[in-house]
């Protein structure tokens, strides 16, 4: 039961849930949460598939995972700062109210 497939299935399901959340949610922070879910599913895939690599190169998958976690943290910081700035300007954090670029 505990082979790569089952880990990959869990990662896929979490990724699908994240896709749904990123598209359907209305609050900007909820969308950020969904994006974090998708990034974490990718990390899980890197970790589980790296165990199948040849012993010398198996470490690369985890190095990639470390980089993804770092970049995801940076992304979250910038995204939350943007949400705060938008909230200060528009007094809302709902995505359907962000229509300054629409005409």
């Amino acid at each position: 039961m505990m082979d790569v497939r089952s880990f990959a299935v869990i990662a896929t399901v979490v990724f699908g849930i994240g896709v749904y959340g990123a598209l359907a949610r209305r609050h900007a922070i909820a969308v950020i949460i969904a994006i974090e879910l998708m990034l974490n599913a990718a990390v899980l895939n890197f970790v589980s598939f790296s165990r199948l690599a040849a012993p010398g190169s198996a470490v690369s998958g985890q190095v990639f995972a470390v980089f993804i976690i770092t970049v995801a943290a940076a992304e979250a910081i910038v995204a939350l700062a943007l949400v705060l700035a938008l909230h200060r300007a528009l007094k809302t954090a709902r995505l359907d109210r962000f229509n300054m670029l629409k005409w």
């Binding site: 990724f15 699908g16 849930i17 896709v19 749904y20 598209l23 359907a24 949610r25 209305r26």
Partner: peptide, 20 residues
């Protein structure tokens, strides 16, 4: 509580569930 955008829910469901 206005959690989801009702107009986006069908498309998001189809895309998320279909991809999965």
């Amino acid at each position: 509580a206005a959690a989801v955008n009702p107009r986006m829910v069908p498309a998001a469901l189809i895309l998320g569930a279909g991809l999965t």
